[in-house]
Amino acid sequence: MTQRLQGRTALVTGSTSNIGRAIARAFAAEGAHVVVSGRDDNRGDAVVAEIERAGGRASFVRADLDGTAEASQALAAEATRRLGGRLDILVNNAGIYPPGTTSTTDPATFDRVYAVNVKAPFFLTQVVAPAMVAAGGGVIINLGSWIARRGVPTGALYASTKGALETLTRAWSAEFGGRGVRVDAISPGVVRDPALDPAGTFPGQTLMQGTPAGTAGHPDAIAAAAVYLASDDAAFVHGAVLDIDGGRTGVTTTGVTTTRPTTTGGTTTDGG
């Protein structure tokens, strides 16, 4: 292992499952002391135990990021305390995706989704970024989504919150980048949580039809991008949104004849 994050500290919100868990594990494997955060104590403790079994360092801090400044401030304070007084990397990953259309979304759901997906990371960054500036620098990574830039007939509310977070990425980069804090984002494609779908029957697979990948991604692919952005390898990357989506937003193979290698060394042709 390269240990690209050796000696650094990190807070990953929403890291008791799926993408957040994968990022926390990857950061710890690269040498970072990680604060795992979420609403479920049992799942949080399980992620910490998994990291520690692999030889990494982690702590769990329970947090219900409800969009209030107080909740975000409390998490930042406790995470910083657990990490010895310094927070080098913040990953704004926590988010919720309620099903529904514009017509079926009630005001309470609207407010709840914006509270968790936009207000919580905003107020967390509000307190963390200045502390990073005072400490000499840091990295903030936001989690966007492919659905923010490729319209689909459902999920308008969620898509708008991820669009907001990607916009905040660029604004925060302008605001804090010159003072030593890099701010970037990852825009994941359709990702399957192996813990929930070990058989690979995830219905969202159909959303990846007509893409180069042709199938849903693994959380580790997103984690690898997060490690890159958090490390010095990305020192010249500011305000970027990395599409880690199997080609979902930028490429289509539908209707295109492609030639793929077979396991026997020949080729097979299909129509995408």
Score class of each variant (00 low, 15 high):
residue 135 A to K: 09
residue 111 D to R: 15
residue 132 M to N: 04
residue 144 G to S: 03
residue 113 V to I: 11
residue 150 R to T: 13
residue 126 Q to P: 03
residue 143 L to V: 15
residue 149 R to D: 08
residue 119 K to C: 00
residue 136 G to C: 11
residue 157 L to N: 04
residue 153 P to H: 09
residue 107 P to V: 13
residue 134 A to F: 02
residue 166 E to I: 04
residue 139 V to A: 14
residue 166 E to Y: 01
residue 112 R to S: 11
residue 165 L to I: 15
residue 136 G to K: 07
residue 111 D to W: 07
residue 122 F to I: 02
residue 165 L to C: 09
residue 135 A to W: 04
residue 120 A to V: 07
residue 147 I to A: 13
residue 127 V to S: 15
residue 142 N to C: 13
residue 145 S to M: 06
residue 139 V to P: 12
residue 155 G to K: 04
residue 125 T to A: 14
residue 147 I to S: 14
residue 133 V to H: 00
residue 125 T to F: 02
residue 137 G to L: 10
residue 148 A to L: 12
residue 145 S to A: 14
residue 128 V to W: 00
residue 156 A to R: 05
residue 108 A to I: 06
residue 107 P to H: 06
residue 146 W to F: 14
residue 109 T to S: 05
residue 166 E to P: 00
residue 116 V to R: 04
residue 107 P to I: 12
residue 142 N to H: 14
residue 159 A to K: 07
residue 113 V to Q: 07
residue 120 A to P: 10
residue 156 A to Y: 04
residue 131 A to H: 07
residue 151 G to M: 11
residue 104 T to N: 05
residue 110 F to N: 09
residue 122 F to V: 06
residue 106 D to A: 09
residue 107 P to W: 06
residue 131 A to I: 08
residue 156 A to E: 13
residue 148 A to Q: 10
residue 109 T to M: 09
residue 104 T to A: 12
residue 136 G to R: 01
residue 139 V to G: 12
residue 116 V to S: 03
residue 132 M to T: 04
residue 117 N to Q: 10
residue 140 I to H: 07
residue 106 D to L: 05
residue 141 I to L: 12
residue 127 V to E: 15
residue 157 L to G: 05
residue 128 V to S: 04
residue 105 T to D: 07
residue 104 T to S: 15
residue 162 K to T: 02
residue 148 A to K: 03
residue 123 F to C: 11
residue 138 G to F: 02
residue 104 T to C: 00
residue 122 F to C: 01
residue 141 I to A: 03
residue 162 K to V: 04
residue 146 W to M: 14
residue 104 T to V: 01
residue 125 T to C: 15
residue 129 A to I: 01
residue 113 V to G: 09
residue 135 A to S: 15
residue 133 V to E: 13
